[in-house]
Every structure is written in structure tokens, then in C-alpha cells.
Amino acid sequence: MVFVPEELQAREIAARQRVEVLQAETEELGLRLEKAREDLSRFQITRETVEQVLAELSDVEAEPEVPVGDAPEPNESPAPHGVGVMMVPLWREGLVVAVLPDVYRDIVEVIADAPRPVQAKQIVPRIGLPTTAGKIEGTRSKLKRLVERGWLDEDVPGQFSLARQGPDADQSNSR
């Protein structure tokens, strides 16, 4: 024969355990929901910022070119860069290294101080990065971008030097 108060007590304990398990799951879901909301917010802010920066950059690019006499002086600070957007402008007469993002400026300065063309693996420690394969390849990518934009030359594959700029510059800059 079943004793009713004991059976009720056993069912109450089982129900309490189910409530505790569900409450723990609810708290876990609440934490996951909050994390997902934070991620969504960050993505929305990032997208809006990128759209704003790109709109501002397209406005700047649409402006007429600055005459050589009106080029910014080297001691003037460059325009601030957008969050997450690194812009390496095409080199043109009168443009100074100060317009480059910091890491690109550091790379150009290291190359300017070198007595002969240098490789990416020689630049990495000089700009304060560890000499890992990833950092070397990332730097090589930046060097190639600087070559494409006219700031550097790569006459021998993997050997980078300052670009020969100006009206008498040789057009042998490799891409």
C-alpha cells in the first residue's frame, strides 16, 4: 500500500529538482541571449561606422586634387583614419609620409633608413613585431600594397626600396 504523504513528498522533491534544472537552463539562456545582443549591437555599430567612414572617404576622393604648393607640411598631423579602415593613398607629388597609417609609415621609415633594398623579414623586428611567419607575411602584404600605390619599388622580387618618384622616375616599378 502507498502512503500518500510520502508519495506527495517524493513528487514534490522531483518537481523541485525539475524547477531547479529549468531555472539553471533559463539563466544560461539569459546569459547567451545577452551575449548575442551585445554581438548584434557591436556589428550594427561597426557597420554604421564603416558606412560613415566610406561616405566621408568618397567625399574626400571626390574633392579636387590639392595643388603641389598647397600640399600639407610634414609636421602637420594627417587626417584621422576611420575605425578599422586603413587607407593607403596613391602617391602623388607633394604627398608626405605622414598621411599613411602608422604601421605603413613605420615601414616606409625603416626602408628610408636602410642603405639597400630590404626584405619583409628584415623589417618586421624593426617595427616592433615578433618574427613569426604570420607577421612576416602580413608585412609583405603591406609592402606589396605600398608598391601598388607608388610609395615603394620592388625591382627584385622580395627586395623593397623607396620608390623613385618625380618626373625623372623610372617606370620599372614592379607590381
Rank of each mutant, 00 (worst) to 15 (best):
Gly30Ile: 07
Glu25Gln: 12
Ile136Tyr: 09
Pro74Trp: 00
Glu7Cys: 04
Leu129Gly: 04
Arg116Gln: 15
Pro64His: 01
Val68Lys: 13
Lys35Gln: 00
Thr132Phe: 06
Val147Gln: 12
Glu34Arg: 15
Glu25Met: 06
Val99Arg: 01
Gln9Gly: 00
Gly134Gln: 12
Ser172Lys: 08
Arg116Val: 12
Pro78Asp: 04
Glu148Gly: 08
Leu90Met: 12
Arg126Cys: 11
Val60Ala: 05
Arg11Asn: 14
Ala169His: 00
Glu56Trp: 03
Arg47Gln: 05
Glu76Tyr: 03
Pro117Val: 11
Asn173Leu: 12
Val99Gly: 08
Arg116Gly: 08
Arg32Gly: 10
Ser41Arg: 13
Lys144Arg: 15
Val2Leu: 10
Arg92His: 14
Glu56Met: 05
Glu28Val: 07
Pro72Glu: 10
Asp113Gly: 11
Pro67Glu: 01
Gln122Glu: 15
Val83Phe: 10
Leu31Glu: 14
Gly166Val: 15
Leu54His: 03
Ile107Gln: 08
Gly69Val: 05
Asn173Thr: 07
Arg18Trp: 06
Glu6Ala: 08
Arg11Thr: 08
Gly84Thr: 03
Pro64Val: 08
Gly69Arg: 14
Ala71Val: 03
Ala114Thr: 02
Gln17Leu: 14
Asp155His: 05
Arg16Ile: 10
Gln122Ala: 12
Val88Gln: 01
Arg92Pro: 10
Arg16Met: 14
Pro167Thr: 08
Ala120Ser: 13
Asp155Phe: 01
Arg105Glu: 13
Gly82Asn: 01
Val66His: 07
Thr26Gly: 04
Glu148Asn: 15
Lys121Ile: 13
Ala112Leu: 09
Val124Lys: 11
Gln52Thr: 12
Ala10Tyr: 03
Leu40Tyr: 02
Arg149Glu: 11
Gly84Asp: 07
Met86Arg: 13
Ala55Pro: 07
Phe160Trp: 02
Gly82Thr: 12
Val97Pro: 06
Pro125Leu: 02
Ser58Met: 10
Val2Thr: 10
Glu61Gly: 03
Arg164Cys: 05
Arg140Thr: 07
Gln165Ile: 15
Arg16Ala: 15
Ser161Arg: 05
Val108Asp: 05
Gln9Phe: 06
Ser141Met: 11
Arg164His: 14
Lys35Pro: 02
Asp39Thr: 05
Arg37Gln: 15
Val53Trp: 02
Gly30Gln: 14
Ile111Lys: 04
Glu48Cys: 05
Ala15Trp: 00
Gly158Ser: 12
Glu12Thr: 07
